[in-house]
Computed example of a mutant assay.
Amino acid sequence: METAEEIVLSLKDLRMSYAEKEILKGINLDVYQGQIIGYIGPNGAGKSTTVKIMLGLVEGYSGTVQVFGRDISDGDVEYKRRIGYVPEVAEIYDNLTAREYLTFIGEIYGLSSEQAEHKAAKLMSKLGLGEVYDTRIASYSKGMKQKVLIISSLLHNPDLLFFDEPLSGLDANSVMVVKEMLAQLAAQGKTIFYSSHIMDVVEKISSRIILLTGGEIVADGSFEELREQNKEGTLEDIFNQLTGFHEHRTIAEEFVAIVQGKEES
C-alpha cells in the first residue's frame, strides 16, 4: 500500500455487539488518501455497522476510530463537514423540490444558499435533471432520486465519500458517468468507500478491495492481488470462495424447477 500517503481513516480493534451478538470482531484498517475502497461482504457481515460508526451515527463500540487523524469519540463533529454519504436506503424530503432540498443540504454543510442553489442547478443539469429542478422530488423515478442523493453527497466538495449501492436505479449512461466521476475524484485525492453487491462494478472501480464476513476482514488488497492469492477468476468467484457460499447453482436450479412445476415432491 502507498504508505507515504495521508491516512484518512484508521480503525484499531473495532468491535461492536448488539444484544450480546458480536457484529464486529476486531477490525483493523488503515485507509489512505485517494483510494477507492470496495467494501464488500454478505448481508449481516457488518459493513453498514462499520460505516455508521465511522460516520458517527452509531455509538457503543470499542476500539479506536480515527478520521482525518482525529479520534471521533472526542465529541467534535467538525470532521463530518468533510464527508459525503449516500446510504443504501435514504430518507429524502420528497415533498420538497430538488432546488429546496439541495439548497437545504448545502446550507447544512456550510455553503451559502446562493452557492448551494447555483452549484446544485449546474449539477442537476449535468445529470439530465435541469428541467425538473423546481419539481417536487415525490414525482421523481427511483433513478432520478438517486441522482439527487449523489449530488447532495458531493455538493460541499467532501474529502471522504461513503457510497452504499450508489448505482441503484440508474440507467446505463448514468452508471458510466458516475463510475468515471469516482475515478476522477480519487485521482484528485478524494477517498471513496464503495459498498455494493454488484461484484463486477466493485472489481472494475476499486483500487483496493476489503472483504468482510462474520464481522472480520478475510481479504484486503487490489483485485489482482486477491486473484493471485485465491487462484479464482472473478471477484464473484473470490467472494464465494472466501464466504463459503457454493450453493448458488443448486439453489438456482431448484428455484427454476419450482417455477416450471418440475420440482421433486
Score class of each variant (00 low, 15 high):
S168E: 13
D171A: 08
F163C: 02
L182Y: 04
A187F: 08
V175R: 10
F193Q: 01
A187R: 13
L167N: 05
Q188V: 13
L167W: 03
V178I: 15
G189W: 10
D171L: 09
V175E: 03
G189K: 13
M181I: 09
A186Y: 04
L167P: 00
D171Q: 06
L185Y: 07
T191V: 06
V178A: 05
S168Y: 14
L167E: 00
T191E: 00
V178F: 11
L185H: 03
K190P: 01
A186S: 12
S168M: 15
L170S: 07
G169D: 03
E180W: 01
Q184A: 12
S168F: 14
E180H: 09
S174H: 09
P166D: 01
D171T: 06
E180C: 05
K190V: 07
P166A: 02
L170K: 06
K179A: 02
F163P: 02
V177I: 15
M181A: 12
D164G: 10
L167A: 07
A187L: 14
F163E: 00
N173V: 13
S168D: 14
A186E: 00
S168T: 15
M181T: 10
G189V: 10
A186K: 05
V178E: 00
K179W: 00
P166Y: 00
A183C: 09
T191F: 04
K190I: 03
N173Q: 14
G169Y: 05
G169H: 07
E180Y: 05
A183F: 05
L170V: 10
V175K: 07
A172F: 11
V178S: 02
P166C: 04
D164I: 12
E180T: 11
L185P: 02
G189M: 12
D164S: 10
L182V: 07
A172C: 06
L182S: 05
V178L: 15
M176H: 12
I192S: 00
F193A: 03
F163L: 14
D171G: 06
K179V: 07
I192Q: 01
F193R: 01
A186M: 07
V178Y: 01
M176E: 13
K190A: 08
M176S: 14
L185T: 03
P166M: 04
S174L: 15
D171P: 08
S168C: 13
L182W: 01
A186H: 02
Q184R: 11
K179N: 04
K179R: 14
A183S: 13
E180L: 12
T191H: 02
G189L: 12
A186T: 04
E180P: 02
